[in-house]
């Protein structure tokens, strides 16, 4: 290694190998996946989202939700994601082809959100509805005691009630409630974010993901075994 030329070549080759294997190979191998079309029913999966839902994805990024939440379900051999009711099957590359960006995440202080749009809580029918999401965003500790999620009160507006209360106005039982004659409604970013969250559903069966699993656990239960 006394020759600078060979050191340079080596340095270049080492980097080129790493780039080729870990950056180029994925782009070539899974960079042009197509949605599957079910030949029996004609439905297409996945589909792209647009409008307020796509704006919601941008809100998700801008609030840094990936810092604590993931959007990827692992196989039972690699983690208890499915047993927790976070999905009926593991997620695969095809699930994310229209997600720009794919918000896979890297840390879990909070639950995985890959299927939050279709998740149901067996014991609590109000959970994971839009109204629940708004309340959870406003004050996470009200819907989920012990949560360390930040409060996103700044995504909401306090408005004077003109005529009727807004359908999405938050209902409070404690001193979070606004003064009489006022209501707290979600602002545009909150609405977009919740609209986005309701699109998150990766339960459609895909061959490469293996069969869907119906989980019978206490607490949260997976919504929907294999359908269609």
């Amino acid at each position: 290694m006394k020759q600078p030329f060979s050191i340079f070549n080596g340095i270049l080759a080492v980097f080129a190998l790493s780039f080729a294997v870990l950056a180029m190979a994925p782009a070539l191998q899974i960079g042009s996946l197509q949605p599957v079309v079910d030949e029996d029913t004609g439905d297409i999966y996945p589909v792209d989202i647009s409008g307020v839902q796509a704006q919601g994805r941008a809100v998700y990024v801008s609030q840094g939700c990936v810092t604590c939440h993931t959007e990827q379900v692992r196989d039972p051999s690699e983690g208890a994601d499915i047993a927790r009711g976070w999905g009926v099957r593991r997620t695969v590359a095809r699930d994310y082809i229209y997600e720009k960006p794919a918000l896979l995440g890297y840390m879990r202080f909070g639950p995985d959100l890959a299927n939050i749009g279709s998740r149901k809580d067996k014991d609590d029918p109000d959970k994971y509805t839009a109204a629940w999401h708004y309340k959870h965003l406003y004050d996470p500790r009200e819907t989920s005691p012990g949560s360390i999620m930040p409060s996103y009160k700044f995504l909401f507006e306090t408005q004077k009630i003109a005529g009727q209360e807004d359908a999405d106005a938050l209902k409070f039982a404690n001193d979070d409630a606004p003064p009489a004659g006022y209501q707290i409604v979600p602002g545009p970013e909150a609405r977009a974010l919740v609209a986005y969250l309701t699109t998150l559903d990766h339960s459609h069966p895909l061959k490469e993901a293996g069969p869907n699993i119906e989980v019978k656990t206490t607490g949260t239960a997976a919504a929907g075994g294999a359908k269609k």
Binding site: G79, I82, P211, N212, I213, V215
Partner: peptide, 14 residues
């Protein structure tokens, strides 16, 4: 079974 929490039986397609 995974790390814990058994998964249920596989469900057939339609």
């Amino acid at each position: 079974g995974g790390a814990s929490g058994g998964a249920g039986a596989a469900v057939q397609g339609p």
